[in-house]
Design a protein around this nucleic acid. Sequence first.
DNA 1: GAGGAGATCGTCT
DNA 2: GACGATCTCCTCT
Length: 221
Amino acid sequence: MHKHTPKIRPESALKGARPLLRRFFDRDPRAVARELLGKLLIRREDAGLIAGRVVETEAYIGVGDAAAHSAAGLTKRNAVLFGPPGYAYVYFIYGNHYCLNVSCLPDGEAGGVLFRALEPVLGLQAMASHRGLELSADLRVTQLRMLTSGPGRMAEALKVTRDRDNGKDLTDPAGSDLWLADDGFRPDRVSVTPRIGITKAADEPLRFVIAGNPFVSGKRG
DNA sequence: GAGGAGATCGTCT
DNA sequence: GACGATCTCCTCT
């Protein structure tokens, strides 16, 4: 296995990336979670763009999934999951961290996908700044992993918060500063495992990762 | 490198 | 009043 080299690209390279359409999200969260692997999550800031490639996701099924926030029915917090597809559901957890999801399935049906890890692509200095880290000049993978390998970390790197982003349309780069896009990249191989950090329905194979990618969360990629 | 505990607060019971 | 879709730091090996 040869050493993984991050592909850091100039901002102009994202111009060919097509925003994902609403219908992409209008289906089973398991299909959305799998097909989101390799897509780009892009944040627009005054100082420029921040972008990462999605390398790890988890599906949360609206109905019959005890681990999903929508399991107990509609509440003020989880309302976005019950709304139309393609919108950001952001929640605050453990008194410390935000996590980003995207709603799936038609309006009225709950379901979502949790973004768990990104491979940094653009705006690495901004990500490091938001995380309170300083990048060394050689951009070692071990350093870059600290930026976006984990749901809380990637949310902080992109400055995702509930106040700022919950309910935001993730299919609309013209009207939104956070969206998803396809630049044609396709993962070679996808692995499916149980979800992380939950106690209910913990055995279901609903976590999707790009096999061998070093930016997947955990001790090793 | 593995394992454990604390941080810290919104949400629902 | 309990707990959680996490992270970091500390200790022990």
